[in-house]
Nucleic acid binder design. Sequence first.
DNA 1: GCTATATTTGCAACACAGTTGCAATAAGAG
DNA 2: CTCTTATTGCAACTGTGTTGCAAATATAGC
Lengths: 126, 126
Amino acid sequence: MGIVRRTKSLDLLMSQFADSHDAISAVALIESLKKDVNKTTVYRLLDRLEDDGVLHSFMSSDGIKWYAKCKGCSSSGHADVHPHFQCTDCGKVDCLDLEVTIPSIPGRKINSSQILIQGTCDNCLN
Amino acid sequence: MGIVRRTKSLDLLMSQFADSHDAISAVALIESLKKDVNKTTVYRLLDRLEDDGVLHSFMSSDGIKWYAKCKGCSSSGHADVHPHFQCTDCGKVDCLDLEVTIPSIPGRKINSSQILIQGTCDNCLN
DNA sequence: GCTATATTTGCAACACAGTTGCAATAAGAG
DNA sequence: CTCTTATTGCAACTGTGTTGCAAATATAGC
Ligand SMILES: [Mn+2]
Ligand SMILES: [Mn+2]
Ligand SMILES: [Zn+2]
Ligand SMILES: [Zn+2]
């Protein structure tokens, strides 16, 4: 169930991701679009965009969902796997272009892994 | 705000963690204790036990909170940092005794990291 | 451009994990 | 045993996300 029609809501939502590669929380998206787009629509668009490989999502440790643009993913799968970094000072969350190797675990089959790193971003360090 | 008094609720809760080192979700704890302990009490005990370094917690990707026993932690800090593994077949979640190295990131200070690995557990593989 | 149709949307109501205020209960120090 | 204070249960609440359904609208075909 991906995106079929190019709607105003879709353009408004995607424009939120236009300027940067930072992640944006569903809650923040709903807040900044609330004049124009119903929250149900925001959630539904996010779901479909994730299905399409346009956005990917992850949970922060406080249980809220974040979205960011994919690079090189498609509806057949998310190939763009990477850790995420949350600044505990300013709250900004972004995707890290970083390879973290998960050692294989005897007797278990690993399908995916999510890494959330917390700390202070370069903006907040200075 | 840690645990001060040895209560019946506390014993009942801790007995859930007695037999294994698997993680247990807050939701599952509330369910299995519901005859004897109010859910508010369960949440409050879990908070305090985490403060005391007796339990540690983490979120699974569906946004629910899990708890497991600590090894060598105290109220002054959680030292026992490790990845968690969730079996997508049977739902079991456990702590991995495994060191994963997070490379340092230029311009950022890392304080903590959470790693959640998903796959199939040894029980479900056979 | 118009029409038909399937997709998308908004709304209200809901689900569900977790929290809060407060009065009642009970641990345990003395 | 008594008193103080931590703990508990309850009911009501918060916040994120979901669902059913009727109304709106994108767009393919003409
Ligand atoms: Mn990302
Ligand atoms: Mn653990
Ligand atoms: Zn920052
Ligand atoms: Zn399993």
